[in-house]
Simulated scan of single mutants.
Amino acid sequence: MAKEVFVSAHEMRPVVVMLGDEPALIDDAVAELRAQAVPGAAAAFNAAVFRAGDGVDGALSMARTQPMMSRYRFVDLRELENATAESMAALAEYITRPCPSAVVVMRGRKLGNTKAARALRKAAKDAGALRSFQARDQRPEQLAIERASAAGCKLEASAARRLVELTGKNTARLRMEVDKLVCAVGGQGAIGVQAVEEACSLVAEAIVWELTDAIVARDPKRAMAACERLLGGGNTSRSTHQLLSMVAWQMRDLLALQEAVRAGTKPPGRWSRVPRGKLRAATDTLRRRPIDPARVTRQLAYANRALNRARASDQFVFEGLILEMTRS
C-alpha cells in the first residue's frame, strides 16, 4: 500500500478511494497512509475523521484548509456507501480537482449502482485513486506470514496453511490468531504447525473458556481441572507461557464485555460470534461478580515475571496464578 499512495518519491496522492468487504485491511492501509501524510505530532492538528452519511461539506472544507505545521492535511471519510447522491456528486467533483495540500481517504464497502455512485467510481478510476479490498482477492496464508514477519517471527508455510484451515479466511480473525501465536512464542523464532495447533484459540478455546468462566465465578476446583487438561490434555503438552497468553487474551475479552455491560452498549468485537447462551452466562456472571482490571493485570504481570525466572517446574507458577485469581 505504501508505494501506491505516492505519485513520486516526494508527492502523495491527494485522494485514495478504498472499497471492499475487508475492513481490517482497509484499516491497516489507512493507518499506514495517515502515518506517511501526518507523522507524529502533526496528526493532532491536521488529521480528522468524518462519516459520509452526515454529509461531506465538513470533510471537503477541512481538505481545502491550509495544513498547520505540516505538508499535508489528512481527511478520513468513512462509510462512503451511506453518502447521498448530492454528496457523491460533490466528492466526484473534488476528485477531479483535489487540493494538493491534503490527502483525502474515501472508504466504504461498496458504492452501489446509482448514477451518482457510477460517476464517483468513474472519477476515482480515471484519477488512478481506486483501491479494492475484496475477500476473494486476498491470499490469507501470505497475509498471515507477512504479519508474523512484521512482528519478528517466521510463520512456516505449512503452519500458515494449517492456521487458515482452523480459523477460516476472515482477515480480522486471522490477524488476531497470528498475534496470539506471536505472543505465545515470545515474539521471536519460528512458528510451526505444532505451535499453531497448540495456541490456536479454536483448538483449545472450549477449555480456555471453561477456565476463564471458573476464574470469573471464583471456582478454584473447576479452574484447576481445566488447568490440568490444558497443561497435558489429549496428546499435547502446552507450555505455561502459551497458556498465560491465552488466559490473558480471554480476560481482555471479558473486561471489554464488562465495560460494554456497564455502559449499556453492544458487546464488542468477537462477542458477536459467541453463542448467545455463553454470552448471556458471561454477562450475568460479570454483573454478579465483576472483574477488577487492576487486580487481574497485576496478577498476570506477576505470573509472567515469575515464569521467566522459574528454575524448577513453572507449572506450579501457573497453577498458583489460577488459585490466586479464583480467590474471593
Rank of each mutant, 00 (worst) to 15 (best):
V261L: 15
E11A: 12
L174G: 02
A48C: 05
Q194S: 12
T167D: 00
R238M: 06
R51D: 14
G168E: 01
L244P: 04
V216E: 02
R276S: 12
T297C: 10
R311N: 10
G58T: 01
V17M: 05
M246W: 06
G108L: 07
P39M: 03
S61Y: 10
R280Y: 03
I291V: 15
A135T: 13
A160H: 04
T65M: 14
G186T: 10
K180T: 09
K3M: 13
E79S: 13
W209S: 07
L202R: 15
E319K: 04
S149W: 03
A301F: 09
A225H: 09
E259Y: 10
S61K: 15
A127Q: 10
G53V: 06
L19V: 04
V30W: 02
L77E: 12
A116V: 06
A160I: 03
G234Y: 02
G189K: 10
G112A: 07
R173S: 07
A63L: 00
A89Q: 13
S149H: 11
T265L: 08
I215T: 07
C200Q: 01
V193Q: 14
G234W: 04
A226E: 00
R218N: 07
E198D: 13
A59W: 08
I215D: 00
G40W: 11
N82G: 02
A184H: 09
T326I: 11
A226L: 00
A172D: 02
G108P: 06
P23W: 01
N46V: 00
M246A: 15
S132N: 10
R118F: 02
F133P: 02
H10K: 11
T285I: 02
A195I: 14
R51V: 14
K110H: 11
L323T: 13
A35D: 15
K122G: 07
M88A: 04
A24H: 11
R121D: 13
V296S: 13
T265A: 15
S201I: 05
G234T: 05
Q134E: 12
Y94V: 02
Q194A: 14
R131I: 05
A148R: 03
D21C: 00
T167K: 03
S245N: 09
S328C: 09
L143W: 08
A225W: 06
S70Q: 02
A226G: 12
S237W: 03
E141D: 10
R107Y: 06
